[in-house]
Amino acid sequence: MNRHRLRLVTFDAFGTLFRMREHPALTYQRIAQAHGLKVVSEPDRLKASFQDAYRKQGASNPVFGRLSQGSRPWWKSVVRNTLIGSGCPKADVDGALDPVFAELFDLYAQAAPYEVYPEVVPVLETLRTTVCEDKVPNGMGKGTKFWMGVVSNSDDRTEAILQSLGLAKYFDFVLTAYHFGSEKPGRGIFDEARLLARNCKAEECLHLGDDLERDYNGPKLIGWNSVLIRRNNDHPVPAGVATASSLKAAFADD
């Protein structure tokens, strides 16, 4: 695609701009043990327990508790159920949960648990200085930088994470499912992104992310351009899906 013809480029956050340095379940284990809990499960059991707790919490309280309890109680339930599901006695978990959760919740709003992918900053630097070629009806004209944003199925700590990683300065807006009230792949959050970019047309928008349904099919179905970022190529994708191994590769032909 020709980025000079775009008016808006948006990115998923987790798994696209940055990744976790270790699986959350292993971090839960480490912090819990530091507070005196004996968490002795094998890593695979811990990870499975986390996935189960996360899935069930998402089903019962969508959008990280945005419409019900809020994100702190939402994540506290995930931590509690992960530890109990991994084999820790319920009474022991409940006795140590408050300090364990407080440390974990604050930790995940900081840079320490995350690693920015190597090509991300150079790509964002280049895109941030890219300009439009043509005059367009929404007020952007030749020589005007296009809009850049983050559209993420994440909670209210995302902007703080981007700030701590030094990435927030590249974006005109950060739109999370938590703040908007609904998640990708629904069209609502993508329509909101267009409104934030002066209501540019769908065909003038590009979204990049690592989830086939949320980051590729969702925006594609409503007329956006989209690219699926596949850093590991670990799952097959349907024929015709536009993929790239990195953000750099996504713009390699421009």
Rank of each mutant, 00 (worst) to 15 (best):
N138D: 10
H179M: 14
G149Y: 01
D92M: 02
D155F: 03
L26W: 08
P73R: 09
L104P: 02
R19F: 06
Y178N: 07
D134A: 13
M20S: 14
K38T: 15
L124F: 07
F14P: 05
T16D: 01
I161Y: 06
L107N: 09
V227N: 14
E22V: 02
N81C: 09
G240D: 06
Y170C: 00
I222N: 04
G95M: 03
V121F: 08
T158C: 02
K184L: 04
L46E: 14
G65K: 12
L124H: 03
P89F: 04
G85W: 09
E119C: 11
L228Q: 00
L212V: 00
G143S: 02
D210F: 09
A25Y: 00
V79K: 11
W147T: 14
R231V: 01
R72G: 10
K169C: 07
Q57D: 06
F146V: 08
Q51R: 14
N2F: 03
K76S: 09
L124T: 02
N61I: 09
R80N: 01
Y216V: 03
R214G: 03
V93P: 00
K47M: 14
L37E: 04
D215W: 11
G58V: 05
R19W: 10
E103S: 11
E203S: 10
S71I: 12
L195F: 14
V227S: 13
V237F: 01
F180L: 01
F14S: 13
F180S: 00
V78T: 08
P24R: 12
L247N: 08
D52I: 12
G85A: 05
R231Y: 04
A202G: 07
P185I: 02
A202M: 04
E22M: 10
F50E: 05
Q33A: 14
T82M: 01
G87S: 01
H35R: 11
P118V: 07
P219G: 05
G36A: 01
E125C: 11
P238F: 06
Y28L: 02
D253P: 03
E22G: 00
H4K: 15
V237N: 01
V237R: 04
D253R: 13
V136M: 07
A193V: 13
G95V: 08
G188Q: 10
Q163M: 13
Q57H: 07
F14G: 08
G240C: 00
R66T: 02
S245H: 15
L167V: 10
R194A: 02
S245T: 15
N225Q: 15
G65Y: 13
G85D: 08
